[in-house]
Design a protein around this nucleic acid. Structure first.
Length: 233
DNA sequence: GCGACAG
DNA sequence: ATCTTGTCGC
């Protein structure tokens, strides 16, 4: 199935596709060391179908920005909890194709396998691009866990019926934890280790944080042309 | 039936 | 996610 056709899927069909994708998930150690790590995110104006996607490339472990790509696209697929990938992945793939070179691993803003059907946006993106991926979410979607300790890097496992599906990580003191889970072609341990090495004083790891800054920047720049609200007179 | 519910 | 200023806490 082509991602471009995602907007025509019904929620039921999207779920059926996730069951299909689930069979292809492969959680295992990386085959090569990480020298370049990428971060992806999207932004949009309320009530608008226009989505601004962006991917940032950082040198690892220095985390200096060495490249990026963006794409302005449209989507008709609404936000539905559990089906986030169908709304955001198409635009992200457009940005992915524009990258000057590909990263060794990608960090997505959302879940990896910490998902009811193990198909969070990071897993979905990893399967389609065949690139190792990690999910770093700002809130929990699925799985049971105990609140991690209050010190930086304290962590707590997330389970689904006894199966480890993610890790709640305290990335910053006095802040809510972030939820890490492998997406595809990477292990749980490596996912957490990489994210830990991407924390730079903020709650959000650099790849995703920089991607967020990037897409918000292009959205604001693009919006300075017309008025979203009904103009008076 | 009730509560939860990535971005 | 986005809309938005000040403000409580470390």
């Amino acid at each position: 199935m082509q991602p471009a056709a995602y907007e025509n899927l019904s929620p039921e069909q999207a779920i059926a596709w996730q069951h299909e994708l689930r069979r292809q998930i492969d959680i295992r150690p990386l085959d090569k060391p990480v020298k370049i790590i990428g971060g992806a995110d999207i932004s949009f104006n309320k009530y608008s179908e226009v989505v601004y996607a962006g991917i940032i490339l950082l040198k690892y472990p220095e985390l200096t920005i060495i490249g990026h790509a963006t794409a302005i696209s449209k989507t008709k697929f609404p936000y539905i909890s559990g089906l986030l990938a169908f709304r955001e992945v198409p635009a992200l793939l457009e940005a992915w194709e524009k990258l000057p070179f590909k990263p060794d691993v990608m960090v997505l803003d959302g879940q990896g396998i910490a998902h009811e059907r193990r198909t969070g946006i990071a897993t979905h993106f990893g399967l389609l691009t065949n690139v190792p991926s990690i999910g770093s979410a700002k809130s929990r979607l699925y799985g049971r866990y105990q609140e991690p300790g209050n010190e930086v890097f304290d962590q707590s496992p997330m389970y689904d019926k006894g199966e480890l599906i993610g890790i709640a990580l305290r990335s910053k003191k006095k802040c809510n934890p972030i939820y890490i889970s492998p997406g595809h072609h990477i292990s749980m341990e490596q996912s957490v280790e990489l994210i830990r090495n991407c924390i730079r004083g903020y709650r959000i790891p650099e790849p995703t944080r920089q991607a967020h800054l990037l897409v918000n920047k292009i959205r604001i720049a693009d919006g300075e042309n017309f008025n979203p609200q009904p103009t008076l007179f």
